[in-house]
Design a protein around this nucleic acid. Structure first.
Ligand SMILES: [Mg+2]
Length: 509
DNA sequence: GCGACAG
DNA sequence: ATCTTGTCGC
């Protein structure tokens, strides 16, 4: 019995690597004994984690539903034991329990406010419901904020939170610990919101709470991260400043050169796809497309508000087939979606949904996981050079290309100006122009993807694919004006939303 | 100050 | 993005 941590994980430039293969099971076997089930007398239950030798458990306050003597099931106490409450803070949804029998393994709390720099990091959630054995999920940190900035009308508005993508809506995961790859507890699961989980972060302030409850600071693992004064407000300006900060941070991880393990198929003059000699290395075969469709919320409760319902889609096409066959599709339905669209902040509306779809494929080791992702939205062609395509690429660490169907006016570029240049170029046989802003840099390219159309599409670098390569690839996957992966994602998400959204659930054949 | 502004 | 009918042309 003692402190459990997982040390086999490697680190790269200060970032923990994701757990791979057999590490996942090892990690689970190592950390699961620290996770307990908490059941209240009303029959409601959630999870918690043991944090010291003194048999203290952290869980979220709402799990108790007012019960002052919940029942705990631990790895060594399968039949349950009563616990008392050492600390209860409804405002920040934080609760410390103490139980008497046995000593169990415990986990280390990570009290830090540097989660911000870890957006994109993979985290691991273990929950324990009353009946099931421990349940394990890998997820990614997709954003951060506070109760206020996340739009949650509950408790202390400045309580730091972060969001994780998480596919399994496991009952009993409230209060479940969210571990980093080392097995340190970064936070605990609280709400589900807009299709992802909200995690209450543990920060420096919580150390004081723990000391006040006689938890022994010496014999339990407490390690402090870099703390920063937490100030927040939920005004639109403040949220946009926070979002800008996230974009600037993530941009440091952006790669704008070719950096991928596959090779491009070279279209031969006969029209068939020929291989650039059978060299070593895989060919590009699976290209993904993502999109989100929306419609008005029909639900009576939310009808008057701005809330909408939506459907995110991820499709994968086999580009080695002449018809560009769709070999995979998945959808994510949303209800009560009220994150606004604000120009240049599209990623904060759509990325959490799309990341979740990617994470689901990754967690299930799906053989069609895309080697490249085309994104319905710009990459570098963005006021701060970090549009949705960059955002998704960095967070999911996947090569991406940004596709815009309209021009986002940046650095003096205008629709009409672009079209004039394109017409001039057209007479010289070229079908694209590079978009050079009035301040110098190249933001992307405008391309006539169909012979007849005068309205171009806008291609820009997302992540790990250069502009030249992006143009080559887009040219080979355009059946119509909009590149086929995006076109399919668009068509299928709208179709799926129409057939499965509010009011239509299950009533259609 | 005003307009423009991916999806 | 969504709400929407017809209409023009290949
Ligand atoms: Mg779209």
């Amino acid at each position: 019995m003692g402190l459990k941590t997982y040390w086999k994980v490697t680190e790269d430039q200060g970032y923990l690597d994701d757990l791979k293969g057999s590490q996942l099971k090892e990690f689970f076997d190592c950390m699961a004994p620290t996770v307990v089930n908490v059941e209240n007398k009303k029959g409601g239950s959630g999870s918690g984690v043991i944090i010291d030798e003194g048999r203290h458990i952290i869980t979220c306050a709402r799990v108790l539903e007012g019960d002052l003597e919940p029942t705990i099931i631990t790895a060594s106490q399968k039949d349950g034991t009563k616990a008392s409450i050492s600390k209860y803070d409804r405002e920040s949804d934080f609760c410390v329990l103490k139980y008497q029998k046995n000593k169990d393994d415990y986990a280390e709390l990570y009290l830090g406010d540097d989660t911000v720099k870890n957006i994109g990091q993979e985290v691991y959630i273990i929950s324990m419901s009353a009946i099931l054995p421990h349940v394990f999920t890998a997820a990614k940190i997709t954003g951060y904020g506070t109760y206020g900035t996340l739009g949650l009308d509950f408790g202390n508005k400045s309580q730091p939170m972060f969001m994780v993508s998480d596919i399994s809506a496991v009952p009993g995961s409230s209060g479940a610990p969210v571990f980093d790859a080392r097995g340190r507890v970064l936070g605990m699961v609280t709400h589900e919101h807009l299709g992802y989980r909200v995690v209450r972060k543990f920060v420096g302030n919580d150390a004081a709470s723990l000391q006040a409850t006689n938890t022994s600071m010496d014999d339990h693992g407490l390690c402090h991260g870099r703390d920063r004064g937490e100030s927040s407000s939920s005004s639109s300006i403040e949220i946009q400043n926070q979002w800008r900060e996230i974009q600037d941070l993530l941009k440091e991880r952006l790669i704008t050169q070719d950096d991928f393990p596959w090779k491009l198929p070279i279209p031969s003059s006969s029209g068939n796809v020929a291989v650039e000699e059978e060299e070593e290395g895989t060919l590009l075969k699976y290209v993904g497309g993502v999109d989100v469709s929306y419609s008005k919320e029909l639900d009576s409760a939310a009808a008057a508000s701005t809330a909408a319902c939506g459907c995110g889609s991820l499709v994968v096409l086999d580009i080695t087939t002449p018809t560009l066959q769709v070999v995979y599709q998945d959808f994510f339905l949303l209800t009560n979606f009220d994150v606004p669209y604000i120009p240049s902040f599209l990623a904060f509306r759509e990325a959490p949904i799309l990341l979740q779809l990617l994470q689901k494929m990754k967690n299930t080791d799906n053989p069609f996981y895309p080697q490249l992702l085309l994104v319905d939205g710009n990459g570098l062609l963005h006021p701060r050079g970090f549009g949705l395509a960059c955002h998704l690429g960095v967070l999911a660490n996947i090569p991406t290309i940004g596709i815009g169907k309209n021009l986002h006016h940046v650095d003096g570029l205008t629709q009409s100006g672009v079209r004039k240049l394109l017409q001039a170029k057209d007479s010289r046989g070229e079908d694209f122009i590079t978009l050079t802003g009035s301040s110098g840099p190249v933001w992307g390219a405008a391309m006539r993807s169909t012979k007849g159309s005068c309205k171009p599409i806008y291609i820009s670098v997302g992540h790990r694919v250069s502009l030249n390569t992006a143009i080559k690839i887009v040219k080979m996957i355009c059946k119509y004006r909009v590149p086929e992966p995006i076109r399919q994602a668009d068509i299928r998400s709208r179709d799926h939303l129409q057939k499965n959204s509010c009011g239509n659930g299950g009533t259609l054949q």
